[in-house]
C-alpha cells in the first residue's frame, strides 16, 4: 500500500543550536550545560510556563523541540488535539534514573525524591507536551540503539492508515549524561515536502 505523506515541519536541537526546517534560529555558547542552555532559550523566548523548571532534562529537551515546531507549524486546535505522538531514544530515562538512584544509595541518608521519581519514565515527556498543547491523541514511546527511521515510518503510516491520527509528531529525543540530541518532525498527508524513511534519515544526518 502506498500512502503519500509529507513532512510539515522539522526541528533539530544539538550542540547548543536550534534549527527549524534546516534554518538555525538559536545558537549559544558551547560551554553551557544543557540545563543552562535550556534556561537561556526559555528566557529568550519568554515561554512563561513555570512548569518547565520542574522538568528533567529529557522533558525539557522534548518540550523545547515541540515549542519551536508548533510555533512554526501553527495548526488549528482541533487538528492539534488529535495529533499522535511517537517519540524514541536510546537511553529511555536513564539520565534521570541515575539521579534518582543516588537518592536511595545511601541508607543513612535515604530520601527518595518523588519529584525525581516521576521523571524516571521516558514517556513523561509525551505527557508534558500533551499537557502544554492539549493533545489527546495516540501515544507511544520506543527505545532503539540509534535513530530508527524504519520503525518510526512504519508506526506513523500505521497510525494514519488505521485512522487513529491525521498528523503524527515523531522524534528522537535522547539525553545521556552531558550528551543530548533532539530531532522532531511532524508528518501528515497535507504539505509539500515528501516524507519517506530515506528522506527523514537524510535530514537527520545532515542537519
Amino acid at each position: 500500500m502506498k500512502t503519500n505523506l509529507n513532512i510539515i515541519t522539522f526541528c533539530r536541537i544539538k550542540n547548543h543550536s536550534i534549527s527549524i526546517n534546516g534554518k538555525e534560529v538559536i545558537q549559544k555558547d558551547s560551554q553551557l550545560t544543557f540545563s543552562e542552555f535550556a534556561k537561556l532559550v526559555y528566557k529568550e523566548k519568554a515561554f512563561a510556563y513555570p512548569k518547565f523548571f520542574k522538568m528533567d532534562n529529557l522533558s525539557k529537551l522534548g518540550f523545547l523541540a515541540s515549542e519551536f515546531l508548533f510555533e512554526k507549524a501553527d495548526l488549528d486546535a482541533h487538528i492539534k488535539e488529535n495529533i499522535g505522538i511517537v517519540l524514541s531514544n536510546k537511553s529511555a530515562s536513564l539520565d534521570t534514573d541515575r539521579k534518582y538512584q543516588e537518592t536511595i544509595n545511601d541508607k543513612a541518608n535515604y530520601f527518595p525524591s518523588p519529584a525525581v521519581f516521576v521523571y524516571t519514565l521516558a514517556n513523561i515527556m509525551i505527557g508534558e507536551i500533551s499537557i502544554k498543547h492539549q493533545i489527546k491523541g495516540e501515544n507511544a514511546f520506543f527505545v532503539s540503539d540509534k535513530f530508527n527511521e524504519l520503525l518510526l515510518e512504519q508506526y506513523t503510516v500505521s497510525l494514519i492508515q488505521n485512522k487513529k491520527s491525521s498528523h503524527v509528531l515523531c522524534g528522537w529525543i535522547d539525553v545521556d549524561k552531558d550528551k543530548y540530541d533532539a530531532f522532531m518532525y511532524l508528518v501528515a498527508k497535507e504539505g509539500t515536502q515528501n516524507y519517506s524513511k530515506e528522506i527523514i534519515k537524510n535530514i537527520y544526518t545532515t542537519n
Binding site: 513555570p50 530520601f111 527518595p112 525524591s113 518523588p114 519529584a115 516521576v118
Partner: peptide
C-alpha cells in the same frame, strides 16, 4: 504559588530530611 500534588509529596520529604 500554584504548587501541585508532586510538590506536596516533595515537601513531605523535605520535612523529614
Amino acid at each position: 504559588l500554584g504548587l501541585d500534588s508532586i510538590d506536596a509529596l516533595e515537601l513531605i520529604v523535605m520535612l523529614d530530611k
